[in-house]
Each structure stands twice: as C-alpha cells, then as structure tokens.
C-alpha cells in the first residue's frame, strides 16, 4: 500500500484507531482508519472516455444493479436505472452513433437539492449528491427538476434479492432514489462498482477520483484533454465529465 493522499490525510485518525479497534478487526482488511467523515478536501468526480465505450457493452449498468440492489419491475416506464446506456446520433445521420453511459452528474449546483422541501436530497461535503431515504417525503419535485432524468421513484414494494448485496439497503416504496457514486465503496477507499466493472471488462473507459487532488489521474486528464459535461449551458457544473463526445 502506497502512501497516497488519503492515507496521509487519515493519519491522525489511524493513531487513535488502533485503540478503538474492536476485536476481530484488522488493519490489513481495511486500509481506512476506524473513523472517517466526508470532507471538503475531496471532490469526487468521474470521467468517461466515450471512444472506449462499446454500444453492446452493459458491464457498468449490470454492475450497478448488482452492487446497489437496483430493482427492475419489468415495466420500462417505472424501471429504475441509476446508470443507463444512451445511444446518440446527429439528426442528419451523417456520422455513426455514439454510445455512452449516463448517471447522476453529482452537480455542483444540484437543482434536485435546491427544490427538495425537506433537504432529503443534499450535497455531501465531498460533492456527492445523496438522497436521505429516511427523510424523503416522496413529493417528486426533484424528479421534475433534474435535467438528466437521473432520478426514479420506487413505485412498488421491493425485497432484498436472494443474490443481493447485503451491504446496501434496498429502498422502501414511495421514496426517490438515484446513483450515489457508490458512497459505501468510496468511503472505504474503493472505486464505484461501474468503474470497477468497466476496467474488469478491459475497456477502462471510466475513471473516478478526487478533483481536489492535483495529482489524481482524473485531475490530470481534466486539465490536459478536452472534456465536456452534458448540458454545460445549464450551469449546474456536472461532475461526470465526458471525453470524445
């Protein structure tokens, strides 16, 4: 394990962590200190290289569904997609179509959070936009406000699937949900499930990292290659960047 930035930041925590660690908990299993909190020192973001993305590959969407127990009801109008593959083509059909995944953009100025009457949707200090499902009253105003159709209401009762991931809760009916940048993995120092799946597939089209760290792969890329965000004109400052769009 290299001394990356996060470990350095967490060093203060590690010192105390050794004391509080419960029996059976080893430092090797978890590189993280015992106690961490989201902090403004980080700004998580994603970069998707569209050129590396194939139109028949759905590794990311499958991985997300599996990791986060995202339900399918068999009704295309109500199925929940935290991440979906989009096919886009110029209207004159002069150029070949482009395939790309779209997920919540974790906007810097998220309209979904601005309109939420209970602050159930909020932006964490590290920039991840989350829905507090304990607080959402299901008014669906955020679904009207999000320009990227990133949000879905849970229309039916769901159950924890047999082969589901016990680490991620399912969502009760009547609340709104969306991609959470796999916050449970990110907090453990891992990459989101879709990014992991993408590199496992050998495509390496998606990278994830901290924009506040000038040396992270994503920071370097965003500085050096031409990237775009979806509907930048709306001024929401999305934090999912696209290369080669």
């Amino acid at each position: 394990m290299t001394m990356d930035r996060r470990t350095v930041l967490g060093l203060g925590g590690v010192a105390t962590a050794g004391v509080v660690l419960a029996p059976g908990m080893t430092l090797i299993a978890s590189p993280q200190p015992d106690k961490t909190e989201a902090s403004g020192d980080q700004r998580w973001a994603m970069l998707i290289d569209v050129n590396k993305c194939d139109s028949d590959c759905t590794a990311c969407t499958k991985a997300c569904r599996q990791e986060n127990n995202v339900p399918l009801f068999g009704d295309p109008n109500r199925d929940i997609h935290w991440i979906r593959k989009l096919e886009i083509r110029d209207k004159e059909h002069k150029r070949p179509s482009v395939s790309l995944p779209v997920l919540c953009n974790h906007c810097e100025h998220p309209p979904c959070a601005h309109v939420c009457p209970t602050q159930a949707t909020f932006k964490r200090k590290d920039g991840i936009v989350l829905v507090d499902k304990h607080r959402c009253i299901g008014c669906r105003y955020c679904m009207l406000a999000c320009p990227y159709k990133a949000r879905s209401l849970v229309y039916h009762k769901t159950t924890i699937p047999e082969d589901g991931n016990p680490k991620v809760p399912i969502r009760a009916k009547g609340v709104v949900e969306k991609c959470n940048f796999c916050v449970h993995l990110v907090d453990e120092g891992e990459k989101p499930a879709c990014v992991q799946a993408c590199s496992k597939e050998g495509k390496n089209a998606m990278i994830f990292g901290d924009l506040n760290d000038p040396d992270s792969e994503i920071s370097v890329k965003v500085r050096t290659v031409k990237t775009q965000t979806i509907r930048a004109d709306l001024g929401l400052k999305p934090h999912v960047f696209y290369e080669g769009l």
Binding site: D79, H81, K85, L86, K91, P147
Partner: peptide, 16 residues
C-alpha cells in the same frame, strides 16, 4: 423528452 444532447437524437432502455 429532456433535451440532453441538443442537436442529437437519443435512445436508450430508459426511454430517452
């Protein structure tokens, strides 16, 4: 439909 890519045609399983 939300106009996510002005000037482009969009399609997906999520009925974009």
């Amino acid at each position: 439909p939300l106009n996510m890519f002005p000037g482009y045609e969009v399609s997906s399983v999520f009925l974009d």
